[in-house]
């Protein structure tokens, strides 16, 4: 059977223990199995080891290979590629993110279905806005901690109509306005050519 990865990232600065717990809860692990996932990889953050260890112990054996790590200085690219899969051997899986813009962008660029779960305990919660706006445009699935199994289902739907990032320019009239970063820097530099 081909393997299929679910990669979970809780972010580097403010660890999101509730997400670690939620993806190791029995209902979610069952949902993973139901969607023929074989592997669950969790980046649990600086102080998340304890939460991770106890949740893994509580989950017991369940047919899913669970692995975790604190943080990877080399970036998450490796894990994203793993989740993207490579055709026959490894099927395309899913990324579950704490709604940090870096991981969302990585997944969108690589066109891996992504479930975005904002941390509602953070004070300045603009990440919810990002999750909502992106879910509305059907770039991501907006997931809730209470029902991640449902989000996994939605991710399968998203897989079928994954949109590409950066968004393609539509219409000629818009191109005049969208000059990209280069256009803006050129204007400021005053290059004559």
């Amino acid at each position: 059977m081909a393997s299929k990865y679910c990669f979970v990232t809780v972010g580097a600065t403010a660890s999101f223990h509730d997400l670690t717990k939620a993806v190791l809860s029995p209902p979610f692990l069952q949902a993973l199995q139901a969607h023929s996932y074989t592997d669950l990889v969790i980046q649990y953050g600086n102080d998340g080891k304890q939460t991770y260890d106890s949740a893994v112990a509580a989950a017991g054996s369940n047919g899913i290979n669970i692995s975790g790590f604190e943080l990877d200085k080399a970036g998450l690219g490796r894990y994203m590629r793993q989740a993207k899969g490579s055709g026959k051997e490894v099927q395309e899986g899913v990324v579950i993110s704490h709604a940090g813009s870096g991981s969302i962008l990585d997944a969108l660029r690589a066109q891996i279905p992504i479930i975005v779960v904002p941390n509602s305990q953070l004070l300045d919660n603009h990440q919810v806005e990002l999750a909502e706006a992106l879910a509305e445009q059907e770039y991501v699935v907006h997931g809730w901690l209470e029902d991640l199994a449902k989000a996994l289902q939605d991710a399968e739907q998203l897989r079928r109509r994954q949109r590409e990032w950066p968004p393609a320019n539509s219409g000629v009239h818009r191109q005049a306005k969208e000059v990209g970063l280069r256009g803006i820097l050129d204007e400021e530099m005053g290059f004559l050519d």
């Binding site: 600065t13 813009s101 870096g102 962008l105 990209g180 970063l181 280069r182």
Partner: peptide, 16 residues
């Protein structure tokens, strides 16, 4: 900056 700021800056430059 740290975390998200760096990620966004480099995503923007890489795209450009």
């Amino acid at each position: 900056g740290s975390g998200g700021h760096t990620a966004e800056m480099l995503a923007m430059l890489t795209r450009a």
